[in-house]
Every structure is written in structure tokens, then in C-alpha cells.
Write a protein that binds this DNA or RNA. Structure first.
Lengths: 247, 247
DNA sequence: CGTCGATTTGAAATCTATCAACGATGGTGG
DNA sequence: CCACCATCGTTGATAGATTTCAAATCGACG
């Protein structure tokens, strides 16, 4: 089985066999973590970096009112605290959603890795910047869209991100999130998430059987959600496609 | 006059005279840009990095409906596209809000700078990561707060960020934003921003004379907004304050 | 003084949260 | 195998928040 991280990076970069094996040996030992368990707390300063090998997790903050705000979903192949050493301390918590397999990489090992493998270094920074771009997109998504668009957009994002690590088919995937998890991410109540999903199913753009979500017409769903995958920076052609423009 | 960027970095790092002068000579030439003018477009791939020396700008995307979504404010001392080279292309636009003085630094020069000045390299990456943390906080702020808290939180953030570059006093600052600019950032209509500001003024937490916003009781405002400045990673003590916690 | 942009106000329509109840489902222990 | 329980999904009704549209006011400035 291909590590989801390697698979993700190879979607964008050409890794050498040396890169691959270095990454593999750094991330060999994983531990199992139960659902709804914290992997890191706000204020933590860990000397390890964590990678999700399987399962879903999220970055979140808990507000004074006790409500939880999810600022990002962490899926297989995602690295949690790549930059925490520079920042000093994590400013949010990370918790699992379903059962996860988590790999801890000592910072020392990671530094060696990035120091000796320029392509890997570049690829990991790219992954981290894509995570940032996703956050920006969430900001856009949450601020100015109807509830249906928000949810649809999130479903599109999952499709692309899960496809990049081989966890989604052409038009669907299994999603272990509760509706209240979707609500904590979009700022909606779980009741409203429910009704929004029903509307989406009503249009035929979204189908659901248990945890399996599928999309009969992906193009149409993306158009409806105003989902433009450019922000995921997946296609290597993005650079060349950029139009020349003078200011 | 101290460069706002240097001032910001020195709030957190101790720069050598060599660091300072290198940064100063790299950012000597600035140009004036009119209000409401784009500095970069979605899809751009520039070989320059831009820094705002004076004035306000914002990162934004325009949606299909024509509405604008602001994902970040860029204030003096902020760098715009530090990581664009890795990402390939910018996935959002940057535009001025009022008249700005903008410095363009060729990527080549910047790479020399970070290559030869480890502390600067670290400081600039730190600044970039703080920008990311601010985005996370916006996500929290927008998703789960009342309109009053959202606006109050934004006003608190400006206070801290502007103080870090010497553009705010102890309890107030001049803010060149229109109410519709605040709305584009918070996802509210300008009408609702207006009414929200009125409520805040009604509580006595916020005062305004023209463009000058002031806060008679900053502590109270921050408490009301649930504003915790930790996410700005300003105080070097943050690391030591972090409680030890086992998982 | 007149104009332009921005702020303010009012009223109605729409969206969303909240509360409360019910239904489906899966796991557990007897 | 079944009763029980906990969790999540679904539904209905109501209250509250927010948008929208339109008009009035204010302020800076030529």
C-alpha cells in the first residue's frame, strides 16, 4: 500500500526512489487513536510532527460558549504541525473524528529529511501552503455563500482531496463525519446541515447511502458550488496556464 | 522612520544591525499606488514579492454573484506573496483600500536575504505563519460568533496588529476602511455592519470620530469579543507559558 | 451651492437557530 | 434472540438574526 502522503506529493512532484524511501522509513511507526480523541492541544509545543495515515481528524477551537469551531479537516496524508517549531506553540487543538492511524515523526528526523532531500522539502512546504489556501477558500465559502453552496463546496473539496490520496472514486467517497461535524465547520447548526443536505439530495446533485456520498454529475455539482479546484494547486500545469498580465 | 516590517519583526526577534540594514536596502524603492487598485491578480506568477510600507490593502476573491470576499487585511509591514514561488500561482487577488506605498522586492534579492541571514529567514517565515494563524482565527470568528463579537474581534485584531507597527496608540487608531469593507470581510451586509457598530458604540466599548476608532476600555472590549491575542504569537513568553500536557 | 460617496434609517422578506420530539440504527448485555 | 440504550438523523414550530431594497441624511470638496 502506498502511503497517502507519498501519493499526495507525487500528484504534484516527481519524487526519487531515495525521497520515497526516506519518507517511508521516517513514517513507519504508527499508533491507533480512538475516535473523538485529541492529538494536540492549544498551547502545546511538541517536538514531534504528526501525520494522519488513515482516518479523519480536524483542527478546532472551543469557544467560551462551549461550541466547537472546526477550522480544517485533516485527512490521510496530511501533516499536522509542520511549522509549529517556528511559531512557538499551536494555537488550536487537533482531534480525531473517527479511528485514526497516526504517525509521529520526531522533528529531528524531519529536519534531516528536508535538509537532505530538496524535492521533499519543497513538496512538504507546498503541502503546507495548500492547507493554507484551503483555509482561505473556507473563508470565502463561509462568508458569502448560501448554506447549500457551502455544503456542496465542502463535498467537492473532499472529493478532490480524497481522490489525491486514493480514498475516493471518480464520483463518490465514504465520509465518516456526522452532520454536526459539518455544522461545526460551516458555522451552521446540525439541524440546518440536515435540511441543507436534503435540499441538495432533492436537486439530484448529491446522493447518500449511509456514509457513502456520491455525485451523479460532478461537473454540475462543482458548477453549483462555484467550486474551482485551482486553489488546491494540484495540476502542475497551473503555472503555465497563468495568463500574462501587466498591472 | 523605522520600517514597519523591521518594527514588527523586532517585536518578536532580535535582529542584528546587519539583518536590519540588509532588509532596509532590499526594500528601499517604493511606489505609490492609488486607492482601490489591484496589486496582484488571481493566477499571477510574479518574480517579485510585495510589501506594504504604508496604507491598507486586502486579499480578496470575487464570487460569481459579483460580491467580494475579503480573506485578509494587509497592513504596513505585511508581505504579500512570500510563498507564491512554491505554490505556483496566487489563488486570490490583492488590492489596495486607501493610498498605499508598496515595495517590490525581486525574489532573487529575497532569496539572498533569507539565505545569508538565518534570523531574518526565521522571522519572515514566522510572520507568514502568523498570517496563517490570523486566517484560522477569522474562520473561528466568522463561524460561531454574533455579529457584534465578529466586528469587535476585528477591531481588537487591528489594535494589536497596528500597535506592532507603531500605527496605533494605546487605545485607538485610524482605520481607512469603509463599512462595506468590514462587511466583505465578515460576511455581513454593510447595513448590518452599520447597525452592529451602532450597538457597539451603544455599549460604550467602541467610540468613533470619523475614521478614528478608540476603545475606552480595551480589556472589556477584548473580553466581550473573546479576543485572545495568543493567536498573533507576539509575546516571546508564549513558549514558556505553555503547560506541559501528556496525551 | 451642488455633487458624490458613504453612512444611516425603515420596513419587509428571508434565512437560520433553537427547542422539542420522534425515528432509525447499531451495539451491548441478559 | 431480544430488550435496552446511546447516538445520530429527521421533522415541526417558533423566535431571532440578517438581507434586501429604498430612501434620507451627512460630510468632504470643488
Amino acid at each position: 500500500m502506498l502511503s497517502p502522503l507519498i501519493q499526495k506529493l507525487e500528484g504534484r512532484f516527481t519524487l526519487s526512489e531515495s525521497d520515497r524511501s526516506a519518507l517511508r522509513s521516517a513514517s513507519c511507526r504508527g499508533r491507533r487513536v480512538r475516535p473523538r480523541t485529541d492529538l494536540a492541544w492549544e498551547g502545546d509545543l511538541s517536538d514531534h510532527v504528526q501525520m494522519i495515515r488513515s482516518g479523519f481528524a480536524c483542527r478546532y477551537k472551543v469557544l467560551a460558549a462551549g461550541t466547537r469551531s472546526i477550522v480544517a479537516y485533516v485527512i490521510p496524508g496530511d501533516i499536522c504541525d509542520l511549522n509549529v517549531a517556528i511559531l512557538g506553540a499551536v494555537d488550536h487543538s487537533i482531534g480525531t473524528i473517527d479511528a485514526c492511524e497516526v504517525v509521529s515523526i520526531p522533528r529531528q528526523v524531519l529536519d534531516d529529511l528536508t535538509g537532505n532531500h530538496p524535492t521533499l522539502n519543497r513538496a512538504l512546504r507546498w503541502a503546507s501552503l495548500v492547507d493554507e489556501a484551503i483555509q482561505r477558500e473556507w473563508l470565502v465559502n463561509m462568508g458569502r455563500h448560501t448554506a447549500e453552496r457551502q455544503v456542496a463546496h465542502l463535498l467537492c473539496e473532499f472529493l478532490w482531496r480524497l481522490q489525491a490520496v486514493g480514498l475516493a472514486g471518480r464520483d463518490g467517497y465514504e465520509l465518516p463525519l456526522r452532520q454536526s461535524d459539518l455544522g461545526d465547520a460551516t458555522g451552521m447548526s446540525s439541524v440546518h446541515v440536515n435540511r441543507t443536505l436534503q435540499k441538495l439530495r432533492g436537486t439530484g446533485l448529491v446522493r447518500r447511502e449511509g456514509r457513502y456520498y456520491s455525485f451523479p454529475d460532478v461537473e454540475a455539482l462543482q458548477a453549483f458550488a462555484q467550486f474551482d479546484p485551482k486553489y488546491l494547486h494540484r495540476s502542475p500545469g497551473g503555472v503555465d496556464d497563468a495568463p500574462l498580465r501587466q498591472h
